[in-house]
Each structure stands twice: as structure tokens, then as C-alpha cells.
Amino acid sequence: MNRRSMHEYETADMSLDLKNKGKHPKEVTVLPENVYHSYLGEYFLGQTDIISLGGGYHGWGGLVNPAESKVNIFLNAYTISNYSNEPLTAEAWLSGILPAGGKTSPYLAAGNQAITPPPRPKTEIKNASFVSGKPRGGTYAFVRRVEPIVTLTKHDFQGMFIIPPGSSFSLFFLSPGKRQVNARVAFGWWEEKA
């Protein structure tokens, strides 16, 4: 018997065997991790206010996990929108202590709007403009250059960055020189019990 006919014989035999036992193969749906967490009401998205910098002063936007949140943040995506005619340099910091404390953004939403009322994240998005000094402590993870009048999108991290309570993921913008520039940062993440 050749290889092909052997396979056909085994498939037919297995199909007949399942019918005789009254069993059917189980249907399995495979969802991407972020879609699964959105279905559960654990996926969120949000953005900062406009972040202004220049003249030797910096700015930043971050995803901040409060110490009392009792959740871990799993970062899935971020975007940086550069509204200026100057390129921007953004440093990514994990758990850095950022200058100026930051203003909390009201621009947050649950990914699953079919849940009533929509879930609210425990996480905060914060930003600050025209700050002096740089982040202290934490880990300087990587740098991104953002060309003028562009939105840079980085997604499908699939939770590679896990941010525990009392920690953060921030994008710190270096002053481009004397001219003022404007940017905005957005994030997509899910939350699970710590």
C-alpha cells in the first residue's frame, strides 16, 4: 500500500470509529491573547494629553500601575504621534521615577464595550510637559526616533512587558532644541490579578 492510500485508510477508519462511539471531535477556537483579554473585559486602551517640550525642557507619557492596584499590566502596544516638523527622540523607561509627577489622563476605555457598564482599568496614564531633569532609577530599556508629522506604532508585544503594582512603562522625550514640539502617546494593555 502506498503512503497516500494508507493515510486515507487511517482517516476513514478513525472517522468510522468516532461515529460508532457517538463522539465528535471538539471544536476549538484559538484567539490572540489580546482578543481573549478584551472578551473578558481586561483589555484597555488610552492616550495622554498633548505633551509639549523644547527649549531645553523635556516631556513624557507613561502607563503607571499604582502600588495598591493588585493587578499586573501586560503591555500590548504603544504609539507615539509627533505633531511637529522636528524629529523626536523617545527613551523607554521601566519603573523610572519621572520628573514632575505628571497629570492623569481621562482618555481611557475598555476594549470590550459590550459589557455594561464597561470595566474601568486600575492603571493610570500620566504625562508631563516642559520638565527639567531625567528619569531616576528604573531601567532605560530602549530608544525610538520618531520622524516629523508621523505616528510610530509598536504593537503585538503580547504582554512581553509585565508591569507590577508600583511600577511603570514610560516614554521620555528629549528636548529637540530651542523650538517647541508637541507629541502624544497611546497605549494598549491588559490587566490580570497580581
Rank of each mutant, 00 (worst) to 15 (best):
I51E: 05
R120W: 03
A186D: 02
G54A: 13
F173D: 03
K19Q: 15
H155F: 12
S170R: 06
H58F: 14
R120E: 15
L98W: 08
I51H: 02
K103M: 11
R145Q: 15
S69E: 01
L174R: 05
F44M: 03
D13H: 12
W190S: 06
E147L: 12
S84N: 01
A12N: 05
Y107R: 15
A186R: 06
A141N: 06
G102E: 07
F157S: 01
G41Q: 06
W60A: 04
Y36H: 12
A183P: 07
G59N: 06
L16K: 07
T79K: 13
K21S: 13
I163G: 08
K70P: 00
D13V: 11
A114M: 11
E33R: 15
M160W: 06
P117N: 06
H7F: 15
A90P: 00
S170W: 02
T11G: 02
S167C: 14
E10L: 14
R120D: 12
G54W: 09
V181P: 03
P119H: 08
Y43P: 00
T153H: 14
R179D: 11
G55T: 04
T11Y: 11
N85F: 03
T48V: 12
V146D: 02
A92V: 02
S84V: 05
T139L: 10
Y36G: 12
K23R: 13
R3A: 15
A114Q: 11
Y78V: 01
G166R: 05
Y140V: 00
P32H: 07
A141M: 07
G137M: 12
P121M: 09
S129A: 10
P165L: 11
F172C: 00
T79P: 02
P118Q: 07
H58G: 02
N72C: 04
M14N: 14
L53W: 04
T48N: 07
P148M: 11
K126G: 03
Q180K: 09
P121K: 09
D156A: 13
I115G: 05
G62F: 05
A109Y: 11
L108R: 07
S175Y: 12
N65F: 07
L108K: 11
K193F: 10
S129V: 13
R145W: 12
F187K: 01
Y140P: 00
E86I: 11
G138D: 03
N82M: 08
S167F: 14
G41E: 02
L18R: 15
E147K: 14
L53C: 08
Y39V: 11
P164H: 05
E86D: 13
G41I: 01
D13E: 13
Y9V: 07
F187N: 01
N76M: 07
H58W: 14
A109L: 15
I125P: 01
E68P: 03
N182H: 11
M1G: 09
H155I: 10
G59L: 13
T104Q: 14
I162F: 01
Q113F: 12
V64E: 12
D17F: 10
G41A: 05
I162P: 00
E68H: 10
N82W: 08
N85I: 02
H37V: 03
E124T: 04
N85Q: 05
G96S: 03
T48K: 10
F142S: 06
R4D: 08
S175K: 14
